[in-house]
Design a protein around this nucleic acid. Structure first.
Length: 183
DNA sequence: GACCCGGAAGAGGG
DNA sequence: GCCCTCTTCCGGGT
């Protein structure tokens, strides 16, 4: 069981830029505040970085449920660990990996959702909740207060590397992976 | 006022 | 010590 867990985590470490082209998108294309809804099987095939489902986690024998977040969702730190393809070791996710994982998990659909999956475009609806969750996932000891502005600065760091692109819209960000999906 | 953007410096971990 | 990935702070723009 644990091995399966680790195998699944390998897929999570996939580089975002290397995602395969999308062949289908289940509609209800949104404008601003609506989210895209997708059939679960397609959803999974589109999103290789996060393929471990809640039910699978719950059956893992050596995973312990820890504290919950502020709205009652269970938070399991091990759930967020990434199996680094280079070192072969589990590590906390990077910020873009965290966001992608979050978008993949329907439990967090109230926090953020896709505006246009083909474009890699998504919007954060609960910036404070996302920031709080990021703090838990990263579990980094810092002196200052992690607020949305700090969290967003971390995202903007990816503009330089090309992993993400500017949208100039409120709470809205875009994964670079969309370029591959479109082409 | 709230948010976006990006420079600069520094912290933490591998 | 070096590098990567943030984190913190901040000034300017929308």
């Amino acid at each position: 069981m644990t091995d399966k867990y680790h195998e699944d985590k390998v897929s999570i470490s996939l580089k975002l830029q290397e995602l395969s082209p999308v062949d289908d998108l289940y509609e209800n294309q949104s404008t601003d505040n609506q989210c895209i809804s997708m059939k679960e099987d397609k959803y999974e095939s589109l999103c290789p970085i996060s393929t471990v489902h809640t039910q699978e986690y719950s059956s893992l024998d050596n995973i312990t449920q820890s504290n919950n977040d502020s709205v009652g969702l269970p938070f399991n730190p091990k759930e967020w660990l990434i199996n680094d393809s280079i070192t072969g070791k589990l590590r906390p996710p990077r910020q873009n990996e965290f966001l992608y994982h979050l978008l993949e998990d329907s439990r967090y659909s109230s926090y953020l959702c896709w505006l246009d999956r083909n474009e890699g475009l998504f919007k954060i609806h609960e910036p404070d909740q996302v920031t709080t969750l990021w703090t838990k996932v990263k579990n980094r000891q810092t002196t200052g207060i992690m607020d949305y502005d700090t969290f967003a600065r971390g995202i903007r760091y990816y503009y330089k590397s090309g992993s993400m692109m500017k949208t100039h819209k409120k709470y809205t960000f875009r994964f670079r992976m969309s370029m591959n999906i479109i082409s």
